[in-house]
Design a protein around this nucleic acid. Structure first.
Lengths: 165, 165
DNA sequence: ATTTGCGTTAGAGCGCGCTCGAAGTCCTAG
DNA sequence: CTAGGACTTCGAGCGCGCTCTAACGCAAAT
């Protein structure tokens, strides 16, 4: 019964989900961002490779200043944007979409409606993904619970093929 | 506060999660599988392309019989296995892992412990992914709630940059 | 008899998101 | 003076998971 509970609970939780957000601030973007960081520091902090950071820059997702030696200097704004980008990437937004979104951001305030629309759509995608994953979780639990997992023959070709419902 | 609730709820739900499964049977594998289907029918049913089904077969994930015309004939077992495989793919298990899993299945009962271990590990992966997605959901909700989304400058370079915690 | 349609095979190609290599610059420590 | 190490640019390469093309077979419908 715990499995059914799981699914119901999660699905219920997903059902509510009317945002408000307040103290989650740092969870989202902030959390003491030094006013300037090197590529190595940012990479470390975001758990990305320096390669990837350069790639994101080339892709037009962030603009990063250089110091006298030509080395990248990430200011707080850049880092926060990268935090946002990383979160979006992790939640399944494609590079292409992110590029579009950033174009909108750079285009000015009048694109806010379209941005909001994008976020709303992405939100829906996340929810779908959550449901999907929850379903798979139930399936995996079922497999684990019944036996090592017969992958296809399911009720392991044995004599008794009834058991439960 | 609804947002915090969301996260807490989902995370709590994920916390319990001790499987049991009973009536979810069909949710997992079954649900009236005809005793034999064509590739088009299976593709349709699983929302995969015939191309993909052939690819899975080539990859060694399923064995499919042929009729007198050399056309594939999917029996119930094959279809059930494909349902399982699809669910695993959707929840993020790689082709490589799935190939290994199927090798184990085909190797016999003595591999059940290893299979169970794989499933357990995958379960953990799903949970991690669910947490990650939930976090991103909160972040997106936050962005939507505060404004179109300033992507980086976050608290839109305005004067007041304090608000809540 | 031929067209339509669904299937077959082997193998090439593709989009994505990195990931890496090569060659070079600059700074610091020994 | 030299070696090491962190950085730079540019461009090629890669792993994954499909996805598609080409050439062909068979069978029912026209």
């Amino acid at each position: 019964m715990a499995t059914e509970d799981l699914m119901t609970k999660v699905l219920d939780a997903l059902g509510d989900a009317q945002p408000t957000a307040e103290a989650i601030h740092d969870l989202t973007d902030l959390a003491e961002v030094p006013s300037s960081m090197t590529i190595a520091e940012v990479a470390d902090r975001l758990a990305l490779s320096a390669h990837t950071l350069r790639y994101y820059e080339r892709a037009g997702l962030v603009t990063v200043a250089r110091d006298s030696q030509g080395h990248r200097v990430y200011d707080a704004g850049a880092v926060r944007r990268l935090v946002f980008l990383t979160r979006m990437r992790l939640s399944g937004m494609s590079m292409r979409e992110l590029q579009h979104y950033i174009e909108l951001v750079d285009a000015g305030e009048h694109t806010v409606p379209e941005r909001t629309a994008m976020l709303a759509e992405h939100r829906a995608t996340i929810i779908r993904r959550l449901r999907e994953l929850t379903l798979s979780l139930v399936a995996v639990d079922y497999k684990i619970a019944t036996y090592g997992g017969a992958a296809g023959s399911d009720v392991e070709r044995g004599p008794s093929r009834d058991a439960a419902a």
